[in-house]
Nucleic acid binder design. Structure first.
Length: 292
DNA sequence: AAGATGCACAACCGCATTGTG
DNA sequence: ACACAATGCGGTTGTGCATCT
């Protein structure tokens, strides 16, 4: 079949945008909205392809873009979300108001990835690196595999029409971004609000599954996502008891699906995001990779 | 002072997904 | 159901600036 390339016109300008172009684009969108991106450049009188216009608008010109350096809290949140969502920058960006996927991607590639590496953590898995090769058999690696399999299972369930959360209205497709919804749900909120809890004994959720519903976030990190991001790191493992909000919302949400003991949610609660993010504050000056 | 190198960020490219007739 | 267009997304590249030698 093939498709007409959208930006192959030799007449089209490439490279950095100049202020005049920005102004034209802003004025046009403020007046008419962007409508069809493909036809926008012609209508607005820009010698750019629609894709370029869209990118310029969404990544730079949009009025709600928050410019300036990322705060430590935002960086923590990016790391946490990356541990859950992987390189799904758009999904991560949706949790950081005013930040774009491109910006977060750049932040990750230029700062956070290196920082994790300096910390001796694998930026892909968020697991400790060792000089002795992959730690496939480590609990952490197992955990990752379990997490992934649970994620796939959950997505499969969703695709079969199993509705984990409030059933969407008819004709609305279930959002496949299961974990993002989980994160944003009451359950996720409870997860984020677990403060300084359950630092102990969060072993493999599968092995624990049938009896481990009290094992909460291993991170001890609280994250309030929107609109005012506020994360507090706590290292006070005062309580190992996760209170019932989790259980309640968990069980009420999960009732509809079978084998609730072995759940993606449990994995989320148990997810071994490398807990101590204090390195973000002092920028890994005291970071030493773990010896093996 | 000048060239080399590294870094940060904006923009591009191509594939995947979604929408539409 | 199919073909095609439009859009979204993630990986990669290009460019300008800062720092180093």
């Amino acid at each position: 079949m093939g498709r007409t390339p959208c930006c192959d016109d030799k007449d089209l300008k490439k490279g950095p945008w100049d202020p005049e172009e920005d102004e034209i684009l802003i004025n046009y969108i403020n007046k008419h909205g962007h409508g069809s991106w493909r036809s926008l450049p012609k209508l607005a009188g820009l010698r750019r392809c629609g894709k370029s216009c869209r990118l310029r608008w969404t990544n730079y010109l949009r009025p709600d873009i928050k410019r300036g350096p990322f705060t430590v809290d935002e960086e923590k949140l990016v790391i946490q979300l990356h541990a859950i969502l992987g390189n799904r920058w758009a999904a991560i960006a949706s949790q950081l108001p005013g930040r774009t996927d491109n910006e977060i991607k750049n932040l990750w590639n230029t700062h956070l990835k290196k920082r994790l590496l300096r910390m001796g953590l694998n930026p892909l898995t968020h697991e400790p690196l060792t000089a002795c090769g992959p730690t496939a058999s480590s609990p952490g690696a197992r955990h990752m595999a379990q997490w992934e399999s649970a994620r796939l299972e959950a997505e499969a369930r969703l695709s079969k029409g199993s509705l984990f959360f409030n059933p969407p209205p008819p004709l609305v497709k279930p959002n496949p971004d299961y974990f993002l919804r989980l994160w944003n749900s009451q359950v996720g909120e409870s997860f984020r609000n677990l403060n300084g809890e359950a630092k102990t004994d969060c072993r493999s959720p599968i092995s624990q599954a049938s009896s481990s519903r009290k094992c909460g976030s291993a991170s001890g990190v609280t994250v309030d996502v929107n609109p005012n991001i506020a994360i507090s790191s706590s290292s006070t493992p005062e309580s190992n008891q996760i209170e019932d909000p989790i259980d309640a919302s968990f069980s009420s949400c999960w009732n509809e699906s079978e084998d609730s003991s072995d759940t993606a949610l449990q994995l989320l609660l148990d997810f071994p995001i490398n807990n101590d993010m204090s390195f973000l504050e002092d920028d890994a000056t005291n970071a030493t990779p773990p010896l093996c």
